[in-house]
Design a protein around this nucleic acid. Structure first.
Lengths: 189, 189
DNA sequence: CATAAAAACTAACGATCGTTAGTTTCGATT
DNA sequence: AATCGAAACTAACGATCGTTAGTTTTTATG
């Protein structure tokens, strides 16, 4: 089954927005990359903001599904963390351009979508916090400032989109393993 | 000594670009926030891009000076890392809006400035790598993938601009200490 | 108070933006 | 071959963009 024209547009737009940002990418730019006129895009999408909404909310749902799945199944906290990181990194690397837009351009959503996006983000962060609390309850993790720890973990994961190259030396799974190791044990010998 | 009009404009612009991005903030927006007309801005700055250049390169120089100072003085690797993180976090929190623009909007620089900025960024990252190598040579740190470790450390630090509030519960020094602890020892008990 | 520089103003330029209206072409189904 | 919807097109709209030119006001200096 071939890709719908709409999804082709979304992918092209995401790639361009990764380089130039949301406001730096015009409908005419996107159309040119698709070898069509700007007006023709409107046969497939309702407007420019829909590109951003689709990208941000589509990925938000994927991330949330990933962590829900991890949390539903029983693992101890270390296993949960391992799997959550793995899920996150795999989604990031499988949707690299979209993830980049997701992470950097969501601020350009207009209300009420921006607020709704922040709400989903908070929900996702909270799922990570629950894992850290589990770890502390089980005596596996130190007592930590949850908010601080969650944000630090998420930042390490999200920064992967800045440097990951599909043809580079590390697979997504290897990245997830290194990240988990770093998060759990740090640098010290 | 009171602040120059130029610096007032830069600070207002940075604050607005933090919310709306570089392309999302117009010269007329900036002027309105300064209670003046857009054309009047040009008595103080040469154009919109100069705001971005000044912000990005001004901060880049501060960050580099910070780590150079740390590396000049003799410390062992753990001390160097502690001081480098402290310097970075203090600069971030002292220049919160500018740092946000520095981290998120540098892509909007036109060549050759974008390339020059990337070069400075690489130089800064390299200074951190040297610290990690020192640590390994001294037997203090694990053998690590330097590139990966540096990017992960930088991401944890940079993400602070996303959530830090001056009136929040943590001082910059406390944040730096928690970050260093996290980087060195991780979550595990 | 005269003067000159600094810093504001009004007005407008050409360019580009997202989007709409209306029309034509393409491609699959009868 | 006729038909009809999908998907492209041309043309243009009003808005806004960064910036410039020329002028007036403000402020500091003698």
């Amino acid at each position: 089954m071939e890709q719908s024209r709409r999804n082709q547009i979304l992918e092209v737009a995401q790639k361009m927005m990764r380089d130039s940002g949301f406001h730096g990418t015009s409908m005419r730019d996107i159309a040119a990359a698709m070898n069509m006129e700007a007006a023709s895009l409107y046969n497939h999408i309702s407007g420019k903001e829909e590109i951003l909404k689709s990208t941000c909310f589509g990925l938000a749902e994927k991330f949330q599904s990933g962590i829900d799945e991890v949390n539903d199944i029983y693992f101890n906290a270390v296993e949960k963390l391992q799997m959550a990181v793995k899920s996150h990194v795999q989604l990031l690397t499988e949707n690299l351009d979209a993830s980049f837009v997701f992470i950097h351009e969501w601020r350009n959503l207009n209300e009420p979508y921006r607020a709704e996006f922040v709400h989903l983000r908070d929900k996702y962060e909270n799922a990570f916090r629950v894992i850290l609390q589990n770890g502390e309850d089980e005596g596996l993790f130190k007592e930590v400032d949850y908010k601080f720890a969650v944000l630090t973990i998420l930042s390490s994961m999200n920064w992967v989109v800045e440097w990951y190259k599909p043809d580079g030396g590390m697979t997504p799974v290897q990245i997830a393993e290194k990240l988990t190791d770093f998060i759990l044990s740090g640098l010290k010998k």
